[in-house]
Design a protein around this nucleic acid. Structure first.
Length: 482
RNA sequence: GGCGACGUAGCCAAGUGGUAAGGCAGCGGUCUGCAAAACCGCUAUUCACCGGUUCGAAUCCGGUCGUCGCCUCCA
């Protein structure tokens, strides 16, 4: 069994073959840290989180690099995003960068997105970028004008191969073309001369300036992953021009060596059917979303559609994903709670057999281009089976319950990140809590036997206030923690 | 105008040649003091539309209509 990946570069699903057996080098374009993270970031980085988790689950040694853009990303006006924010808030650019970088990681941590192995910053790699630009100049892929350096797109005939765009087809941007010092409108900046008011500036062979937006990814990918690496990821909205420019720079600097073997681009997220944009005012920050929904619900929603497809964020959509997730979580917590007073015993062979069948089905779905929505479908089917088994057998052995819990931990927890680690059986606190709840359930059972519904309901209501839900079944009362 | 996606039940969604996963919502049932949950059953003869290829198509080809993204900063 090999993993198949839809490669945007070839527009085909291909068997994944890493350059080095057992090892995956992956680079994903990270955020520009000039404002709060929004739910679009949650989709892009949440999707790659699951991709990386799965590769690791399948035994690959993954090196995951995701940059932090903290310089060079300009607005329409030609103004640097970070500088503008700094001016607006009367702070320094690096304060802005620190603030939003920290918030980005805080939000991603809260979402359960595992950190990349390396989060290189553009501003920390100016020498590497200058070196690459010098090389491009030396080899006549770039030219200098008035202290700025531009990449000569005509020197790279394959420009456009990722996005399927051809230079001739592009509409010429009027504003830029008019005042441009570029030889051709499609040429892009590698290095920009800093105007006097531009305070983020560095010395270079061409005078004081700052790097263009695209060069950081090429320089940092080369530094940490080598000239050719396995997977390059990002949001589809960066396919042009950003990703295209990265390829051009890197492949020219590397004398034609392929930049990345596989390109995986994540579909965009819309909010209530419309693209989020500051000008429309329909933005939702990740922090706001996390206040309204638990992280697992947001993850379940993000994973409800294939990573490469667009997805529309709405209250109704997240809530229905959350309800679906609750069914899985309900089964998991039931298993874990029953583990507290389950009879000792080995795992039941029949149950282990069908657990393994679901696991194999899950892996088959994920192997096929990381089809998380289909994999969740498998988990849902398994959950139906688990729930009915739980209902039919009041005394499942600890071995069996542990085996069920284990498969949820692996597939739902380690891979998808939607099954939390809580209620760890065996910890002293958890055991005590389970025991205390059990005492209350026993008292309540006695009250119910006396048809003392007031006491019975009081215990249930008070526990509910503490987040413990009691459920009366045929074989007694069970409980879950929300 | 150019490039690229997409159009599957009330909603979301998987499915790229072999006869429609899964979730949400809904209906009926089991269980139940009530509640909640869970479980069982039902809910697309059909995959935007029209042609074509094929023994056979949601899946391939051609066309039509519609939605969206990108082409300028965006994950």
């Amino acid at each position: 069994m090999t993993i198949k990946i839809y490669n945007v570069l070839t527009r085909q699903k291909e068997a994944f073959r890493p350059i080095q057996e057992g090892r995956v080098n992956i680079y994903v374009c990270g955020p520009t840290v000039y404002d709060y993270s929004h739910i679009g970031h949650a989709k892009t980085y949440g999707n790659f989180d699951v991709i990386v988790r799965y590769l690791r689950y399948r035994g690959y040694d993954v090196l995951y690099v995701q940059n932090i853009t903290d310089v060079g990303h300009l607005l329409d006006s030609g103004e640097d995003r970070i500088l503008r924010k700094a001016r607006q808030t009367q702070s320094t650019p690096m304060q802005i960068v620190e603030r939003y970088t920290k918030l980005y990681f805080d939000n991603m941590d809260a979402l359960g997105v595992q950190r990349p192995d390396i989060s290189p910053r553009a501003s920390g790699h100016i020498p590497e970028q200058i070196e690459m630009i010098q090389q491009l100049l030396r080899e006549e892929h770039a030219y200098v004008v008035n202290g700025s350096v531009y990449f000569d797109v005509s020197s790279y005939p394959e420009y456009g191969k990722l996005s399927g765009r051809r230079v001739e087809d592009q509409e010429e941007g009027t504003r830029e073309a008019v005042r441009s010092e570029k030889n051709h409108p499609a040429d892009f900046a590698l290095w920009k001369k800093a105007e006097p008011e531009h305070i983020m500036r560095w010395n270079s062979p061409w005078g004081e300036g700052f790097p263009g937006w695209h060069i950081e990814c090429s320089a940092m990918a080369r530094k940490y992953l080598g000239e050719t690496f396995d997977i390059h990821g990002g949001g589809i909205d960066n396919i042009f021009p950003h990703n295209e420019c990265e390829i051009a720079q890197s492949e020219c600097a590397h004398h034609g060596a392929t930049f990345a073997n596989y390109w995986m681009l994540v579909g965009s997220l819309t909010l209530d059917g419309v693209k989020m944009s500051k000008s429309l005012g329909n933005t939702l920050t990740l922090a706001e979303a996390l206040e309204r929904w638990r992280p697992e619900a947001i993850r379940a929603f993000i994973l409800s559609s294939h990573y490469s497809n667009p997805i529309d964020f709405s209250d109704v959509a997240v809530e229905s994903a959350e309800k679906g997730w609750q069914r899985i979580w309900g089964a998991v917590s039931l298993v874990r709670n029953r583990l507290h007073d389950a009879p000792d015993g080995e795992v039941d062979a029949d149950i282990l057999t069908w657990l393994e069948t679901y696991k194999a089905a899950f892996i088959e779905k994920m192997d096929d281009d990381f089809n998380a929505p289909a994999a969740i479908g498998v988990l849902q089917e398994m959950t139906r089976k688990v729930n009915s088994t739980l209902a039919e057998n009041a005394a499942l052995s600890s071995g069996t319950l542990t085996a069920i819990d284990q498969i949820y931990r692996e597939l739902g927890g380690d891979v998808l990140g939607i099954v939390p680690d809580s209620a760890e059986a065996g910890s002293a606190d958890a055991e005590r809590e389970a025991g205390l709840i059990r005492v209350l359930i026993d008292i309540r059972a006695a009250a119910r036997a006396n048809r003392d519904w007031a006491t019975s309901d009081r215990i249930r209501d008070r526990l509910a206030e503490l987040g413990v839900t009691l459920k009366d079944g045929k074989d007694g009362t069970t409980w879950t923690v929300s």
